[in-house]
Simulated scan of single mutants.
Amino acid sequence: MQEIRNVTRIAVIDGQGGGIGRLLVEKLSRALRNRRAEILVLGTNVLATSTMLKAGANEGATGENAVVQNVAGVDIIVGTISLLVAHSMLGEFTPAMAEAVARSPAIKVLLHLNRSGVEVVGTSAEPLPHLVDMLVERVNTLVISREKSLNGKTGPIP
Rank of each mutant, 00 (worst) to 15 (best):
G21S: 08
G21R: 05
V25W: 02
V25A: 04
E26M: 11
E26P: 00
L28C: 11
S29F: 02
S29C: 01
R30G: 14
R30I: 12
A31S: 15
L32P: 01
L32C: 02
L32G: 00
R33M: 03
R33K: 15
N34L: 13
N34M: 06
N34R: 14
R35Y: 08
R35C: 08
R35I: 01
A37T: 04
A37N: 07
E38D: 11
I39G: 01
I39M: 03
L40P: 05
V41Y: 05
V41P: 03
L42T: 02
G43R: 04
N45Q: 10
N45T: 09
V46Y: 02
L47F: 14
L47H: 12
A48F: 12
A48E: 12
T49P: 00
T49R: 13
T49G: 01
S50L: 13
T51A: 15
T51C: 10
T51Y: 00
M52P: 07
M52G: 02
L53G: 12
L53V: 12
K54M: 14
A55L: 07
A55F: 07
A55Y: 06
G56H: 10
G56C: 06
G56Q: 02
A57L: 10
N58Y: 07
N58L: 04
N58W: 13
E59D: 12
E59Q: 13
G60P: 02
A61M: 09
A61S: 13
E64K: 10
N65E: 15
N65D: 15
A66I: 08
A66Q: 01
A66V: 08
V68W: 05
Q69C: 09
V71H: 09
D75F: 03
D75K: 00
I76H: 10
I76F: 08
I77E: 06
I77W: 00
I77K: 00
I77T: 00
V78M: 01
G79I: 06
G79M: 08
T80P: 13
T80C: 13
I81D: 01
S82E: 14
S82C: 10
L83P: 05
V85F: 06
A86M: 07
H87K: 14
S88N: 11
G91Y: 04
G91E: 09
G91V: 05
F93Y: 15
F93C: 11
T94G: 04
T94P: 02
P95L: 11
P95Q: 08
A96T: 09
A96I: 00
A96V: 06
A96G: 01
M97R: 11
A98G: 12
A98Y: 10
A98F: 12
E99K: 15
V101E: 08
V101A: 05
V101H: 09
V101S: 08
A102S: 15
A102D: 06
R103P: 00
R103G: 10
R103A: 12
S104T: 02
P105T: 05
A106F: 08
I107H: 05
V109E: 04
L110T: 10
L111A: 12
H112V: 14
H112L: 14
L113W: 01
L113K: 07
N114M: 14
R115T: 13
R115K: 11
S116M: 09
G117M: 11
V118E: 12
V120M: 04
V120H: 03
V120Q: 05
